[in-house]
Computed example of a mutant assay.
Amino acid sequence: MIRLSWLISLGISLLGFLIIGHFFTIQPDETANNGSLGFIGIIFVLPFLLLSIFITFRYILALTRSTTDRLMKSFSIIGGILLVGVLLYFSLDYKNGVLAALDGSAVGPTLPKLNEYTYTIYFNFYTFALIHAIVGVIAAVVGVVKPGTKKEELPE
Rank of each mutant, 00 (worst) to 15 (best):
Ser66Glu: 13
Val45Asn: 06
Gly35Tyr: 12
Phe44Leu: 15
Ser74Val: 14
Thr56Lys: 05
Asn33Met: 06
Thr127Leu: 05
Asn115Leu: 06
Met72Lys: 14
Ala32Glu: 04
Phe123Trp: 00
Ala100Leu: 14
Ala100Asn: 15
Leu114Asn: 05
Val84Trp: 06
Leu46Gly: 07
Leu82Phe: 14
Ala62Ser: 14
Glu30His: 12
Leu102Phe: 08
Asn34His: 13
Ser66Gln: 12
Ile78Asp: 06
Leu83Met: 10
Leu88Pro: 05
Ala32His: 00
Val107Arg: 07
Gly104Cys: 05
Pro47Glu: 05
Ser66Val: 11
Thr67Leu: 13
Lys113Asn: 10
Ile53Tyr: 03
Ser74Tyr: 12
Gly35His: 09
Leu71Ser: 11
Gly79Trp: 05
Val45Asp: 08
Tyr94Trp: 15
Met72Ala: 13
Gly104Phe: 01
Leu50Ser: 03
Ile60Pro: 03
Asn34Tyr: 12
Ser36Asp: 04
Ser52Val: 01
Thr120His: 10
Ser76Trp: 12
Phe39Met: 04
Leu92Cys: 09
Thr31Arg: 03
Ala62Lys: 06
Phe54Cys: 06
Phe39Val: 02
Gly108Lys: 04
Lys73Ser: 10
Gly79Thr: 09
Gly108Ile: 02
Tyr89Lys: 13
Leu114His: 01
Leu46Pro: 07
Tyr122Val: 04
Lys73Ala: 14
Tyr119Leu: 02
Tyr122Arg: 02
Asn34Arg: 04
Ser36Ala: 10
Glu30Gly: 11
Leu37Trp: 08
Asp69Leu: 09
Asp93Ala: 15
Leu87Trp: 01
Leu102Tyr: 07
Ile81Met: 13
Tyr89Leu: 15
Pro112His: 00
Thr118Gln: 05
Thr67Val: 11
Phe48Ile: 08
Asp93Pro: 00
Leu63Thr: 12
Leu71Asn: 11
Tyr89Val: 14
Phe44Asn: 07
Ile40Pro: 01
Ser66Met: 11
Tyr119Thr: 01
Ser76Arg: 08
Phe44Trp: 13
Phe39Thr: 02
Ile121Lys: 00
Tyr119Asp: 01
Tyr122Met: 07
Phe48Ala: 07
Ile60Asn: 10
Gly80Ser: 08
Thr64Gly: 00
Leu99Trp: 02
Gly79Leu: 12
Pro112Arg: 03
Phe48Ser: 08
Asn33Gly: 12
Ala100Met: 13
Leu87Cys: 02
Asp103Thr: 06
Leu87Thr: 03
Lys95Gly: 02
Ala101Arg: 10
Tyr122Asn: 04
Ala32Arg: 01
Phe123Arg: 03
Leu114Asp: 07
Ile43Asp: 00
Ser36Gln: 09
Ser74Asn: 11
Thr127Gly: 03
Phe75Leu: 15
Leu102His: 09
Gly104Met: 03
Met72Asp: 08
Gly104Thr: 02
Leu88Lys: 07
Leu83Ala: 15
Thr118Tyr: 02
Leu71Cys: 04
Lys73Glu: 10
Ile78Gly: 06
Leu87Lys: 03
Ser66Cys: 13
Pro112Met: 05
Thr127Glu: 09
Leu87Val: 00
Ile78Lys: 06
Ser76Met: 14
Ile40Trp: 01
Ala32Gln: 02
Phe48Val: 12
Leu102Trp: 08
Asp103Tyr: 09
Ala62Trp: 02
Phe75Met: 15
Tyr119Val: 05
Leu37Ala: 08
Thr118Met: 00
Leu82Cys: 12
Thr31Tyr: 04
Leu37His: 01
Ile40Glu: 08
Leu99Arg: 06
Leu87Ser: 01
